[in-house]
């Protein structure tokens, strides 16, 4: 059990006490999860935990059983006396689990009963992360258990300020941030997720480009693969990092723009003036389309995109991407056939 320091006896049985200091193993575990290694089984057992030496009157903070969420919360609450109620979200963070409904009313009500929380504390108040609100109906929790839900902050780091201010959250504390660093840490798992499709396409692209001239030319294959990798990187890495500075509200447009920059870079680096029309078309149509696709995929990682907006973007941009790739691919195909026939 991560952070286990001993047992605390309560009227409802013994409760595990946990420390607030993260060890090397916790940091390494978080790093691995960021790279998608064992991420779906990075969890702690749901239930009630004690931070410090909590008494019956001390507050109850609710979180998810994704170990990274659990670690961030217990670290933020260092030096305090609190009860931590961990819900079974199957190792998913609060925000995503609330969207799926696992961080939800039924689980919260069930967990209150399973842990016999009413016997442990002498008050009827719960503190929930504000990003858990999409899954939990506070009035139903109140009706079914007698516990009043207070939605606190978006970030665990603001919890101490919230508690010290008498459980009042400013609008700023409720609002999720999306800083450069917060965007940066999301990139590894996106990269890892992109690998299978990118590798499959790279093999096809390499063979097509290398054999396209009629004679096997590996250098042509490598150039095509490099151009493709750059297009993926423009969508997966550059777009998230440059998000506030890329033009348009649409992620697909932002991605296409990042891809277009890569097209121009290639044109400058690889003597674009000497390219045939096919290569030029492929560079300026296919690359932005690929980048736009991967940029669009980043919408799910952000705390501000809506499903109606994403659907609208997809309806317009996916046919546009398909058309752009078709222009590049068809011109290449025509060119190759002409070369092979002549």
């Amino acid at each position: 059990m991560p952070g286990f320091t001993g047992w605390l006896d309560t009227p409802a049985g013994r409760v595990a006490r946990i420390g607030s200091t993260l060890r090397l193993r916790d940091h390494f575990g978080a790093w691995k999860a960021r790279w998608g290694i064992g991420r779906m089984s990075y969890l702690v057992p749901p239930g009630l935990y004690a931070i410090g030496e909590p008494r019956p009157e001390d507050p109850v903070v609710v979180t998810a059983n994704y170990k990274m969420s659990f670690d961030i919360v217990r670290q933020a609450l260092a030096g305090r006396r609190l009860w931590l109620l961990v819900l079974e979200t199957h190792g998913i963070n609060v925000w995503c689990a609330a969207g799926k409904g696992t961080f939800g009313t039924d689980e919260l009500v069930g967990r209150i009963q399973a842990t016999r929380l009413p016997e442990v504390v002498n008050h009827r108040r719960l503190i929930l992360p504000v990003l858990g609100a999409p899954g939990v109906a506070a009035h139903l929790v109140k009706a079914q258990t007698g516990f009043t839900v207070r939605y606190a902050t978006a970030r665990a780091a603001d919890l101490p300020t919230y508690l010290d201010a008498g459980m009042v959250a400013s609008a700023q504390m409720r609002e999720p941030t999306f800083t450069f660093r917060e965007r940066l840490v999301l990139i590894p798992v996106e990269l890892v997720g992109a690998i299978p499709l990118v590798l499959a396409i790279s093999v096809v692209l390499f063979l097509a480009a290398a054999f396209g001239t009629g004679v096997f030319t590996p250098s042509a294959g490598w150039t095509a693969v490099t151009a493709f990798f750059g297009a993926v990187a423009a969508g997966v890495v550059a777009t998230p990092l440059l998000l506030p500075w890329l033009p348009s509200r649409s992620f697909a447009v932002k991605g296409a723009f990042a891809g277009l920059i890569w097209s121009f870079l290639l044109y400058l680096l690889l003597d674009g003036a000497s390219w045939d029309s096919t290569t030029t078309l492929a560079a300026f149509f296919c690359i932005p389309a690929v980048s736009a696709f991967y940029a669009l995929n980043f919408t799910g990682c952000t705390p501000f995109t809506s499903i109606s907006g994403v659907k609208k973007e997809m309806r317009i941009s996916i046919p546009a991407m398909a058309a752009a790739v078709a222009v590049g691919a068809l011109s290449w195909l025509t060119d190759t056939v002409i070369k092979l026939l002549s």
Partner: peptide, 12 residues
């Protein structure tokens, strides 16, 4: 509100 998660890869 017609609630959901604004996630293109999820929709795909």
């Amino acid at each position: 509100v017609s609630a959901g998660v604004g996630c293109a890869s999820g929709l795909i």
